[in-house]
Design a protein around this nucleic acid. Structure first.
Length: 437
RNA sequence: GUGGGCGUAGCUCAGUUGGUUAGAGCAUCGGGUUGUGAUCCCGAGGGUCGGGGGUUCGAGUCCCCUCGCCCACCCCA
């Protein structure tokens, strides 16, 4: 029999791992809800065609796909956006706008695992549909930043790098690149750090740019503008700030400052995202050191819902994966030793008579809503039992001796605070109210 | 898909030029002592040395294939 092990690029979640995953997913959920998003989900597999709509045939080799007994071609979801688009397209006219949805699906991609990338991972998706206002873009970014803060990260660790397709298009136009070649220009821009300078220059020439303009194009793409300093960009390019083509990015900047997250944000026109479907704002969250792959990425995709057969619906959103997020938190020393739930109370017996009352007292405490545990050991050795309680990371220990009554809640016990070490005599009927303090 | 590094117990690792039934610490489980958390003492379980094939009297050790992990590419929805 072949060795039975978790498939390549997947993870087993033992209690500590599961607690950590929950730590992340719970934070995603908590932050989403307080930012006004509703949770949704869809099937973990969809028809293969759904993924071809957005990404073409080329996507198939990246998918785990199969044929069911009805000869239907299906695929495990590699992303959530097509499902989201399908769901929105189906009920777009009935849903109140703006639609603010989030989800935390697990996704599978048939890629070779490496740092920051596995074959199964969890991804936080946050989307606002039905509004083309820059405030929606800003609220998505605010929500992403809120999550980072929630997990203890600060602007010293991460930066939201923001660009805007329309602004870049406007600059390209100013430099003399015809509109049909803008997509090629985006691709070239995206690859500029991966290719030789000569190849970049040649690519730029193919777009109709001469030597001087190539240099200018490259220079602009390498500049960063802090929030509030977009004027510098306009000046250097001779753009009128009142020009409609830059109004959008200017409003976004104003909103970011209104939300109070300007210090996290920087405008970097070199951020392109490979995705052809982004139409306006695009952004990525990067480590300030620039080392790792992007922690999150997103942008505006105003035409996607139509592509999936829905009405024209502007949309903006982002995704954040658990793998890179965990890497970042680990690097920054923000991973707690153990995130498994701690027992409120651990019940032990120091006498045979006390042992007879353990189950009933545990039952009562549990019915009162407490996380209560006890030991299966038969020893009356208080030291050993306290060690069990301590190992379980319990907050309190209830010690039952000869003073217990015949029924739950009767008689006396002792309640020990494991953190402080203090111990008090207590009537068993008063334990729950004492624990609530 | 391409290239490099690495696989011995749950974890961290020893294991001589190929040579008896492959070891240690920690962890786990059981027992004992002090009945109030560190401990201390005794004991147990756990490895087809990632898997398969080959060379050899003999392979954890040498050769080939394969699987997995890590890293870098490709790609990144």
């Amino acid at each position: 029999m072949p060795k039975l092990q978790a498939p390549k690029g997947t993870r087993d979640f033992y209690p500590k791992d599961m607690a950590w995953r929950n730590h992340i997913v719970d934070a995603w959920r908590r932050v989403s809800i307080r930012n006004g998003f509703d949770q949704v989900d869809g099937p973990i597999f969809e028809s293969l065609d759904l993924y071809k709509v957005k990404s073409g045939e080329g996507i198939v080799s990246e998918l785990f796909h199969f044929t069911d007994r009805g000869e239907r071609e299906l695929a495990i979801r590699p992303e959530f956006t097509p499902t989201l688009a399908r769901m929105v397209a189906e009920q777009a006219n009935a849903l109140p706008k703006p639609i603010k949805w989030f989800c935390t699906p697990n996704l599978c991609r048939a890629e070779k695992p490496q740092r920051g990338r596995l074959r199964e991972f969890w991804q936080w998706n946050v989307d606002i549909l039905g509004s083309d206002l820059p405030v929606a873009d800003a609220e998505c970014i605010f929500t992403a930043v809120d999550l980072l803060k929630e997990l203890g990260l600060g602007p010293q660790h991460l930066r939201v790098k923001i660009s805007h397709r329309q602004t870049v298009r406007h600059i390209l136009k100013k430099l003399g690149v015809v509109e049909e070649k803008h997509t090629a220009a985006f691709e070239l821009l995206d690859r500029r750090d991966k290719i030789e300078p000569a190849e970049f220059t040649n690519g730029a020439k193919a777009l109709g740019l001469d030597e001087e303009r190539v240099a200018r194009f490259d220079q602009i793409c390498r500049m960063e503008f802090n929030s509030g300093s977009l004027g510098v960009l306009y000046d250097s390019l001779g753009i009128d700030p009142k020009d409609a083509s830059v109004a959008d990015i200017q409003q976004l900047d104003d909103q970011l400052r209104a939300f109070g997250i300007a210090e996290w944000c920087v405008f970097d026109l070199g951020i392109v995202r490979g995705l052809a479907y982004y139409t306006g704002t695009v952004f990525e969250i990067h480590e300030t050191s620039g080392a790792m792959r992007a922690l999150a990425g997103g942008g505006r995709y105003d035409q996607l819902i139509e592509l999936f057969g829905g009405p024209k619906t502007p949309a903006v959103g982002f995704g954040m994966g658990d793998v890179v997020l965990s890497d970042v938190l680990r690097d920054k020393g923000l991973v707690p030793e153990d995130t498994t739930p701690r027992p409120d109370v651990f019940v032990i017996a120091s006498s045979d008579r006390g042992a007879g009352a353990v189950a009933s007292n545990v039952a009562k405490l549990r019915l009162d809503g407490f996380h209560a545990r006890f030991s299966y050991k038969t020893t009356r050795n208080v030291g050993k039992l306290l060690k069990d309680a301590s190992d379980a990371r319990a907050r309190f220990v209830l010690i039952l001796g000869d003073a217990v009554g015949d029924a739950a809640g009767e008689g006396q016990g002792q309640l020990k605070d494991l953190a402080g070490g203090t111990q008090i005599d207590i009537a068993l009927g008063d334990v729950s109210s004492k624990l609530r303090v």
